[in-house]
Amino acid sequence: MRLRKKWWARPELESSSFFITNPRDYAGRWSEVFGNDNEINLELGCGRGRFIREKSKQNPNKNYVAIDLKDEILIYTLRGIIEEEIENVRVVPLNIQLIEGVFGKDEISKIYINFCNPWPKDRHKKRRLTHSGFLANYKQFLRPGGEIWFKTDDIGLFEESIEYFKESSFEVEYLTYDLHNSDFQHNIVTEYESKFTGLGMKTMFLIAKLK
């Protein structure tokens, strides 16, 4: 669905210190953005921000960067963290294909990818956020032993992503084809997940660790 342009969103976003318009200026220096040396976790494609809000509230001793492309989406993420008085999240407008150079070596401890576009056609698969090309970029800033937590409802994407991870020096440490009926205890339900689980959607999930 195409988003209607919200011309007022960018000025409101830029009025907040939680919104980082020039993320490359802080590569290797994100601790200065947060004002502490706590570990930094990253969500790629944060949507309206339910996941990142809940995760950051559960872990106030960790820092979070929420990335998405559209101001029309990010404005709701920003409003949510302000309304809930969350201090440990920063919001970044970015095409994830251009993430190279945004973070320094070993600067990120964990990456979350929730229900990204499955890009099912062969000619589009390189656009998948779990594709080997993207994983090569993430490895530039994900510390050794760092993790990627990946959720999807698309079995083709899931099974091919397992291979992408294995080919890219990641070890799959946890895997389930039915997250909500698994033994995993730390799931935070996204907006998308909440809507479609009730319609019978099964969520597939894995944790991949960088060797």
Rank of each mutant, 00 (worst) to 15 (best):
I99P: 04
L175A: 07
N36A: 04
A9W: 13
T176V: 09
G101K: 11
P60W: 07
F134H: 10
E167N: 14
I207D: 01
F196V: 12
R123W: 12
E167W: 06
F158L: 03
N38C: 12
Q97D: 03
K55R: 15
A208R: 08
L44M: 12
S182D: 01
C116Q: 01
M201I: 05
K125C: 03
E163Q: 15
D178I: 10
N95K: 13
D122H: 09
V189M: 10
W8L: 05
Y192G: 12
I40T: 09
G145Y: 14
H180T: 12
F134Y: 14
L42Y: 08
F34M: 08
L44I: 14
E72V: 10
T130N: 06
K105W: 02
L78V: 04
E173G: 14
G45N: 08
N114H: 15
K139D: 03
R127S: 10
R24K: 15
N22Y: 07
K151R: 15
R24P: 05
S17Q: 10
E167R: 14
E39S: 14
K121D: 03
L210N: 10
P93V: 02
G80T: 00
I111Q: 02
G156Q: 08
E100L: 03
G133T: 11
P144F: 06
D178S: 07
Q58P: 00
R24Y: 06
L13F: 08
P93S: 14
G28N: 13
N61C: 00
F165A: 01
